[in-house]
Design a protein around this nucleic acid. Structure first.
Length: 231
DNA sequence: CTATGATCATGA
DNA sequence: TCATGATCATAG
């Protein structure tokens, strides 16, 4: 069977308004309903389909970037992120943003950084994620478009600067998830045995475990509150 | 391998 | 209980 598991029946939105209109259409629907509309089946659970919800929403909204190093909606410059919400109405998991570059030139600016560009314009889509609710019965909430406030940008810059200092010094392999108040660095790979070439503190090439940038829930929780209060 | 999409599962 | 470190699927 070479049946395509994933189809994209919806074309990409041409304007931001069109994208937001589609968000209104999916708010209040369950993941099961969305999957049904797309002709997709809902997996038993997410254990072996961890990115399923994100892929479903991207398909429904017409994201077109695939796995490129680009925002999901390339023309609009908008990145989509699902935000899993627990029973308390708060973000359940940290949010993966992007991979940490392994080799550094030492002259990176926050403004031009990969992570800053990814977070410049984000469409947050809250999704029920309480494990007591069957996957197909989980509701999609009201999505909103977010651009970092000067204050939020400064918060992220603070963490990023400290983390990048360590990376430039060749200490990337020593960074743990405990560092960073809002932005952290954690392993990001198929498994802990995956090795890539990085730079050691001695300046030599060294095999290290790939890592990625993640937003802590303490940060996304603030975004959620901000969005709810502006309704 | 690296990128995308993330959540799982266990130790503290 | 919950964050850290580990892991799963897929495309190129």
């Amino acid at each position: 069977m070479t049946e395509k598991k994933f189809t994209v029946p919806i074309s990409k939105p041409n304007t931001q308004q069109e994208l937001l209109r589609r968000c209104e259409l999916l708010a209040g629907k369950t993941l099961g309903q969305l999957a049904s509309e797309l002709g997709m089946s809902v997996p038993e659970n997410l254990q072996r389909n961890k990115g399923w919800v994100g892929m479903l929403l991207e398909a429904y909204l017409g994201a077109d970037a695939g796995n490129q190093t680009e925002p999901d909606f390339t023309d609009l410059g908008i990145e989509m992120k699902t935000l899993p919400i627990n029973a308390l109405g708060q973000p359940k998991e940290s949010t993966y943003v992007c991979t940490v570059s392994l080799e550094q030139t030492g002259e990176l600016s926050w403004q031009n950084s990969w992570i800053r560009r990814k977070l410049a314009n984000v469409l947050w889509v809250p999704i029920e994620a309480d494990s007591n609710i069957a996957l197909a019965d989980r509701f999609v909430g009201n999505a909103w478009l977010w651009q970092p406030t000067a204050e939020q940008d400064a918060m992220l810059l603070q963490d990023w600067s400290e983390l990048m200092d360590r990376i430039v010094l060749g200490e990337q392999s020593e960074i743990t998830a405990k560092e960073g108040e809002y932005l952290q660095i954690r392993p990001k790979a198929a498994n802990s045995k995956v090795l890539a070439t990085g730079i050691s503190s001695a300046g030599a090439k060294q095999k290290i475990n790939p890592k990625g940038f993640y937003l802590r829930t303490t940060f996304t929780r603030q975004l959620l509150i901000q969005a709810q209060s502006s309704n």
